[in-house]
Structures are given as structure tokens and as C-alpha cells.
Design a protein around this nucleic acid. Sequence first.
DNA 1: AATGAATGAGTCTTCATTCAT
DNA 2: TATGAATGAAGACTCATTCAT
Lengths: 220, 220, 220, 220
Amino acid sequence: MSNPAPVDENGMTGIAHSTAVTAANTGQAKQPKRERGKQRVAALMNAGAELFQEKGYEAATMTEIASRAGAAIGSLYQFFPSKEALAEAIFARYSARATDLLQDLALQASTLSPVQLAEALVDTMLALSSDRDATIAMTDSVTSIEERRKPLRNATRNTIATILCEAVPALSKARATVASAMVLHIMKSVQALAIAEKESGQAFVAEARTVLAVYISQLH
Amino acid sequence: MSNPAPVDENGMTGIAHSTAVTAANTGQAKQPKRERGKQRVAALMNAGAELFQEKGYEAATMTEIASRAGAAIGSLYQFFPSKEALAEAIFARYSARATDLLQDLALQASTLSPVQLAEALVDTMLALSSDRDATIAMTDSVTSIEERRKPLRNATRNTIATILCEAVPALSKARATVASAMVLHIMKSVQALAIAEKESGQAFVAEARTVLAVYISQLH
Amino acid sequence: MSNPAPVDENGMTGIAHSTAVTAANTGQAKQPKRERGKQRVAALMNAGAELFQEKGYEAATMTEIASRAGAAIGSLYQFFPSKEALAEAIFARYSARATDLLQDLALQASTLSPVQLAEALVDTMLALSSDRDATIAMTDSVTSIEERRKPLRNATRNTIATILCEAVPALSKARATVASAMVLHIMKSVQALAIAEKESGQAFVAEARTVLAVYISQLH
Amino acid sequence: MSNPAPVDENGMTGIAHSTAVTAANTGQAKQPKRERGKQRVAALMNAGAELFQEKGYEAATMTEIASRAGAAIGSLYQFFPSKEALAEAIFARYSARATDLLQDLALQASTLSPVQLAEALVDTMLALSSDRDATIAMTDSVTSIEERRKPLRNATRNTIATILCEAVPALSKARATVASAMVLHIMKSVQALAIAEKESGQAFVAEARTVLAVYISQLH
DNA sequence: AATGAATGAGTCTTCATTCAT
DNA sequence: TATGAATGAAGACTCATTCAT
């Protein structure tokens, strides 16, 4: 909302389905043992993602994040030992989701027509929008995320390149690489244009599907 | 650099050539009377734009901005009464440049082929990239800029829509509006892809030109 | 170790053998009813004494103390209702030990030569060194201990004065008082010099015995 | 006051008179440029030394230190970028003073009788008492000071050993080394006993002079 | 006009203590 | 009784802004 058209790199890996999706794999965060704890961790991460996206990483305060999740500041620190750790956990969750989604798509790529593929890619983007804004907001400020982002982006592009090669058998490896970047960029228009503007959103999503289909169709 | 692929909305107005390009239109900034003052203001704004882009709005400190511009903190406040005022001045400069550039393009639009138009649009984007990153970095944190951005974007889209209508006479007003958003988004890929990755940058710029040409050509 | 040469006042009372050695005399600590409880209390106090000495009173955290004693934080609070209560219990234990030791020495003082007395005093100091560091570390931060320390010191001096009077019958009460303070101070060199420097430690202990013997011998 | 009998190692170097005594040589502290600044730095260091000694390093808060010096918290941080930096500056001042004082004494050692030497040593101690308590309070908590302390102590002992050798020509190097440690320890009784107890203080100072004279006289 | 020391509100983070399980 | 998650007051430190020089 406050980030009307953030179109950064996105992220979806070519690696097998991410094993863990919880905060723990990020590093220091204490793993919640009880069911209650899991819910709290999720609430905390959601609140963090929202606030990071609304006001930016630096401007979002840990106190407000805890407060929005209905927790005390101490509780937030029980699970995430630092603001950066929280940011990394959010990034990890986003990264895992993106990876899973694209991976699934790769499995069916060879059976899809350009139009169907375009639709599937747009849908993938729509499903990820929630954490994406937060991820973008964190990039400039959190060094560790800045570093993790490039690999994610490369993995994503590779997977898309693979998908393109399956959908368009004649496509050379080299062309697929460049094309994957453009496909990814066009996919982002869904978030940049459609989501930011609810009214005319539908028209933009439709346009994105069209452009993607046209672009994929003309690849050779 | 630190902002690998920031592809937000950009900004180019449909309004007549911006009247003032200096900080003056921000309202707060004191107008320097002599040449020396103008240079200092420019240096200050450049330093601010650089730092905002490198570290993000919040992380950039007024002290460091002044320091990079070779000025004392007191001098910075002499011209820009607050950090927000500095941010607005930088945004205003970017906004004015974008407006001017696109406005010029609109004058020649009717004489250009789709391919030529695509090239011109890409060139416009390349010319603006320096201040764009800073503008994006400021958006989340500076409320006043968040508000100014939408109008800029709308104006930009209108101008692009106008350009498209002139280049593709058969295009309806409604379609031109949606198309302008997509054109703008594709233009941003230049910054998102090409600038962020110097090595393969050229290939991406070329791809952007192609995609834009293809997209414009198929409009009707 | 981290307290290379802490030579504060020490503590040994002139009062009869301390009645209770456990945390009980602190007032707050709950008396454990079974053997297992006693062990746990001792473990907790030992862990506290160690940590207070290693990192200082403030830097030592209740969580780490419990953890080192192999107990949960809740258990620690079961026996010691506050950090200060734990500190007081440790002080009380040290105080009682010191009192007992010196008291025993007083009983035999009249039968000892200056050299033998010097040796006995040095041995007393060596026996107490473990808790002394912790006690010193707590003094600055825990008001209640700061207050308890002076009485302990006075009592200790009184007992030493008594010992000196028995060992050196000609000694006046007034002189014995001043001398006791100096004797105590020299005793502390054992901890300050000998313990802190393991290599040359033996030489220092020997020197302390000598000085003490010389000092006592010349009293009159 | 709250540290009635702190008798840690002290510090006086054998190196030539310390070059700089200001806070700057400690490391990061910004050097005050105006006269006003120097006064402020001194006030800040005095307040820090007082509070560290009264409540211990951890318990003393930066806010209270600034407040006692009549400065804002921000001003304190202008000169001392961290609590540790302040601690180091105080230690450096103490270290320099101690070095200077002992060095001066070494120059006249050969002309002094044991009694005169004893008096001079006691006077040296009295002159240093103000910063000594603070230094001791900082030792446990500030790693960098813990490390600096041993060298200071060694240097001090060396200088004292040199003094003893000049005063007692027959003294072997080895014996002088051990003796210097004991002399230093006895010197500390001045602070431990005399200063802590104002009433009977005089008697203790006198006793210290006596013991020192006796000890030095019997060296051979 | 230029300078940079001074200010203090606001941020992240820690940790003693409580209490539901 | 034992456990450890939850709480929030308090502390170190930063930085936008002011103002005396």
C-alpha cells in the first residue's frame, strides 16, 4: 500500500522443496515448543512483515511490531533475538514459499500452453505478494538479506529458465536465461500495478497475463 | 548498487515543463542568492540522493550527508530546514527532470516508429536512473513523498498514454491508459535488470527495447 | 581469575559460632525440607558465587546462575526470592565460615608462637578465598551487603585483636585494635598476590608469612 | 566509600613520564577543541569515576554520569563514544598519574632513608586515591581494562623494585621483585584502611608508614 | 553566513521477576 | 514442586535539530 510499485527481484529457488519453513532455520531464533508458541511466532512474523512494508525496515519499531502481534516486547525477543533476526526469518519464509510454488510449476511446465503458463506464473505472483513487500523493504537496511537476495533471484531465474525451455523446446539455454529475467520482471507488474491499485487492478492483472503470453509465444 | 532491482513506479509528469527545478518549490528551502550557494545546494542534494540510495532514508544521517557534500551540518540546515525537506527537494528535482524528458518525447511521438519510440523510452529511463533510486528509498519513510508519488505516476502515465495514442492512432483512450502502465513497468526493467547487473546489462537493455517494441506494435 | 587482586576487607566474626549456615538466616529463603533440597540450594549458591566472581554481580544473570546449577529459573526463585536474597545468602555463608575459622584460632592463640600464629592466619585466609571473591564482587551493587560488611569486618578485627592480645600479652588494647587492621590487611595479600598469580604464588605466600611473623614479633 | 577496602593491584609505570593525560589517548574519544570542552571532559571523567566507585561499573548509568557532570547524555557520548571508552579514559588518567608520581620518586630514592622512603610511598598512595577506587570497580566488567591492568601493575612493581634497590644497595634483584609486590600491597592499606574510615584514619596511615619502614629496613 | 558542540526524545535490547501449566 | 514462556521497566546509544560563537 505504502509501497505502490515495488518491483525488485523476487525469489523462487530451483532447489528441492524447502525443508523447514519456520523461523528457526534463519539462525538464532528460539524454536517454540508448544502449539501456542507457533501461533505466536507466526503472528509476530506477520506483524513484522506488515510494518516493514508499511513504514520501511528502519522506521518500523520492535515495540510496535510486538504490540501489533498482541505480545510484549520481551516475547518478541524471546523468539527473535534481534530486529535483524526477525527480518531474516520473514525473508526465509518468503523464500521457502516462493521456492515451493515455482518448483511445483516446473513439474507441469511441459504440459502447458503459453497462455496457461502465463496464467500460472501470474497466479504464483499473486500468492506471494504478502511477504514480498516486506522483503523488499528490508533489503536496503539488512545486510544479511541483501546478500541472500541475489542467490534467491538467481535460483528463481534458473527455475523459470527451465520452465521456459520445457514450454518452448526450441529455446536455447542462453536466450532462456535472458528471457527468464524479463518474465520475472513482467510477473512483478502484477504486484506493482494490480495490487497497489485495487480499483483498476483486474485490468492490470489481465494485461499482465496477455503480455506474458505474447512474450512467451514469440520466444524461439 | 545496494538496490539491485528497485523497480517502483517512476515519475514523469504530463503537466507543462516544471517551473522550478531547485529546492524552492518545496516551500521550506531558502533560495541561495549567489552562484556559490547554488553549487552548495546541488552538492547537498547529490550527497543526500546518494546516501538515501546507498543506505536507505532512515539509515542515512544528516551529519554524513553534510560531510559527503563537504559542508558543516549547520550549512545543510541553512538550506533544508529538515531531513524531510531535503527529501522533498530531491524528489522535486527528479520529478521535474522526468517531466521535462517525457514532455519532450511527446512532441515528437507522432513521427516515431514503434521501434524508435521503444528506444526513446528506454533512453529516457536510463537518463533518470540516478535520482530514481533515491526517490524509491525515501518513499516508505517520508509520508509527504508517498503522497506526491501517486500524482507523479498518474501524470507520467497520462503523458505516456498521449504518446501511445499519437504513435498508434487506432488506440482507444481506455486501452491506452492500461497500456501506459505496462509500458512504464517495462521501462523500469532497464533499471531493475540492466543497471543492477553491469556484466549482462547490455543484453537486458536490448531485451527491454525489443519487448517494448513488440508490445507497442501489437497494440491496436 | 577475573579478579586479579581483590583485597577488600574480609570477614570473620567475633561472635559465637554462627548458628545457621544455610540461606535461612537471610530471612527470605525457604528452608528445604529434604536432603535433595539442601543439595540444590548449595549448588545454586555455588553457581551464584562463581558467576558473581567471574563477571561481577550485575553482569551475572539469574538465568545463567540457574543454568550452571542445572536448575530451572523457576527453581532458583523457589529458594531465593530475589537476586539480592541470593547474594545475601552467599554472604551469610562466607561470613559464617570466616567466623568459625577465626573463632577456632582464638581458642589456641595463647599457645602459639608468632611464627605459628602467622602461619595459622595465612592458612585461614587460604581456606576462605573461594567465597571472598564473590563477596567482594557483590559489595558495590548490593546495598544490604555493603551494610553488613562493616560489622563483619569489625567483628573480625575484634577477634584478631583478641588473638593478638593473647599471643602478645604486653599489647595494649588500643594498639591491638590498630594492629588487627594491619594484620588483616596483610592477610589479604595472600589472596591479592598469591592466588592471582599461580606461578610466583608460593613465594608470595611465604613472604606473607614472614611479614606477618615479623610484624607480630615487633608488637609490644 | 562504598568500596571500603579495595586493595587491588595499583599502577605506576617505569616508562618515562606519560606523554598525554587527556582522554583522547584512550582511543575513540573526540578531542575537545575549545577550552570549554576540556573542562567538560574533565567533569565528565570525574563524575564517571565517582559513580563507578560508588555503585560499581555496571550499576552506574551513563545518564546519571552525564547528569552529575551537569551535561546532557548526548554530550557525554560526544566525547566518549561508549561506556567502555569512558572507563578506559579514566583508567588512562589514573595510569598516567601513577606513573608520573612513582617516576619522580625513583629519581630521589638513593638519597632517602627507609623512613623517608616509607613516607614518600604513603604520600604517593594518598595522592592517587581518587581514581583508584574507580579503576578497581571497572576491572571486573571492562575487559579492555582487565587486560591493561596487569602491565600497569608489573611496571609499577618494577619501578618500586628499582627504588628498593637504590635504597637498599645490598638487595638482590630477585628479592627486590618479591618485596616490591609486598610494598605495593602494604601501600594499598592506606586506601583500604585510612581513607575508608575517616575517624581512625590517621592512626592507620601512621601504622602504614611504620610497617613500611620496618619492612624496608629489614630487607637485605 | 558558517560552524559544530549541545541537547534529549526515541530506539533496540536485556534481564529480574511472575505465573500458568 | 518444577518448569520456562511472558512481561515490561530500565539502560546504552543514536541522531535530527538548535543555537551560541
